[in-house]
């Protein structure tokens, strides 16, 4: 694990503006505008997480406790919670504005904080960005709950758009093995 890459203050600021804008669109339920931030080739993955057996041969080493040991990811033989493309996300956005999307009608209230925004890789036209989020979710008539997780994104520079970037890849690592949440079908 290494430190984030050194980028200019302007770049860091532009990335953070993008994430604040994205979070605001999602919390204000402007999902159609959020969809416009996505690259049409987006891959959107939520790995499953398990209580893994500790490998005794790794004792004494940080690898023993590596988060990766617990994840069923897109390139593995298990089954991620979600493996989605643009069409899945479009379906989710379309559903949101139908009155018979019953589990969110009336809609849930959400508020998310996106923090620890680190540029982990930079190329000429894209960045790999890791961030953390806490998302408060209150569905009418239910207990409110906290979603906690990490996002590993690839964003590409889109100079011709107001937002400045498009989201081309997202992996959402949730901090739960047993899902004690009403759904993990949200837009994280």
């Amino acid at each position: 694990m290494s430190l984030s890459v050194a980028v200019t203050a302007d770049t860091q600021r532009a990335v953070e503006r993008f994430y604040a804008y994205e979070a605001r669109l999602l919390d204000e339920r402007q999902y159609q505008q959020w969809l416009a931030l996505l690259s049409e080739s987006i891959s959107y993955i939520v790995p499953a997480r398990v209580n893994a057996a500790v490998d005794n041969r790794q004792r004494g080493n940080e690898s023993m406790l590596a988060v990766a040991n617990e994840l069923e990811r897109a390139d593995g033989e298990g089954c991620p919670l979600r493996e989605e493309s643009y069409i899945h996300l479009m379906l989710r956005v379309e559903r949101a504005y139908k009155p018979n999307s019953w589990s969110e009608n009336p809609p849930a209230r959400t508020r998310r904080l996106v923090a620890n925004i680190e540029v982990m890789e930079a190329t000429e036209d894209s960045f790999t960005i890791w961030s953390h989020f806490h998302l408060h979710y209150a569905r009418p008539g239910s207990r409110s709950c906290l979603y906690s997780g990490q996002r590993k994104d690839v964003i590409v520079i889109a100079a011709d758009t107001d937002a400045g970037f498009k989201l081309a890849g997202r992996e959402v690592i949730l901090d739960y093995a047993d899902i004690e949440l009403p759904t993990v079908g949200l837009l994280f």
């Binding site: 919670l81 493996e83 899945h88 009403p182 759904t183 993990v184 079908g185």
Partner: peptide
Amino acid sequence: RTNYSSFFGPGGLLEQEDSEA
């Protein structure tokens, strides 16, 4: 495997309605 996970399970498009019902 996405036949299942797209629509069912904790993140599925359909089963979020079922679990609420």
